[in-house]
Simulated scan of single mutants.
Amino acid sequence: MRCDVWWARPAAASPRLLALLDEAERERYGNYRREVDKLRFLTGRTLIRAVAAQWLGTAPEEVALDASCYDCGRPHGKPRVVAQGAPQVSISHSGQWVALAVVAEVPVGVDVEEIRAAEVADLARISFSTAERTAFARLTEPEQRAAFFTYWARKEAVVKATGRGMSVAMSKFTLTAHDQPPAVLASETPEVDPARVRMADLAPGEGYRASVAVFADEPPEVVERQADDLIGSLG
């Protein structure tokens, strides 16, 4: 099994890219207040359609997405490609990166995080398990900032793979330490089965942390790819 992770920078809002959005997506795009948030959203949706079009042998304009929330039905959930034989996808963006994970059949989640100013100790208290908090407390304050975003990207990837996002409490499952290969060691929530979670850290570059998770019997071959040219060909 192969999992492709595509990396793109936020693209300019050209008429061609904007035309790829459906009605619900255009509304979401318009509701973002910051320009960078608009462009990351636009780039993410464009990237899904471009990669899915290659997978399905069709045009990006023909790729339909459904982002209905599993809970309320509103269009702010995990996007899904609506087509026979479509891949499973997960999207994430932070800072100057947009990441898209694509795999056949099995659930997938991806997350990228820019290392930034944040009250990481407070966030760790509410999002880490008891074992993770104990390990985190042993680190110096400078070490904690980088370690926190490693933990967070890994945990976000896992909860995204569930399809339920942040409704799955991050504190209910325990990961390996930030300086060890990623894996789920224990779980108190039924959505996360340690025996089925396969993880890999990604390489977005200095100042970022990123991870991908799939729910499968075997670990996937993870291939990271650059998507700027793919996006540019549509603009």
Rank of each mutant, 00 (worst) to 15 (best):
F149V: 11
T162K: 00
R74C: 15
R45D: 01
A121S: 12
A86F: 07
E35S: 01
G30L: 02
A53M: 01
C72H: 01
P204N: 06
P15C: 03
C3T: 15
A169M: 07
V212C: 09
S167R: 09
A147S: 04
L139V: 09
V89A: 02
E143A: 14
D66I: 05
G235I: 15
R45Y: 06
Y32E: 05
E61F: 09
W7N: 07
A118G: 05
E143M: 15
E113A: 09
V112N: 07
R116M: 13
R2Q: 14
A12R: 12
D4N: 01
P181V: 03
T46M: 00
A104G: 08
L47E: 00
A11M: 07
L21I: 13
R138S: 11
R80D: 05
V82Q: 01
S129W: 00
N31H: 15
R116C: 10
Y70Q: 12
D193C: 04
D229G: 11
R28T: 04
R9M: 14
V108M: 06
I48C: 14
L65W: 07
V81E: 13
R196D: 08
M199D: 00
V192H: 00
A86G: 14
L175S: 05
G163L: 04
A213K: 08
A50G: 03
S68F: 08
N31R: 11
Q180C: 05
E27D: 13
V89S: 04
A53R: 08
M1S: 12
A12H: 11
A153H: 03
V223I: 14
V159Y: 13
S233Y: 08
G57M: 06
P181L: 10
R74V: 03
A11S: 14
L65S: 04
V106T: 01
S129Y: 10
H93S: 04
I231N: 11
T176N: 00
A83P: 06
E141C: 15
S167P: 05
M170Q: 10
M199H: 05
V197A: 15
P79N: 01
E119A: 14
S127I: 04
V63T: 08
Q88V: 10
R164D: 03
E141W: 13
V223Q: 02
A86K: 01
V120Q: 02
V212R: 07
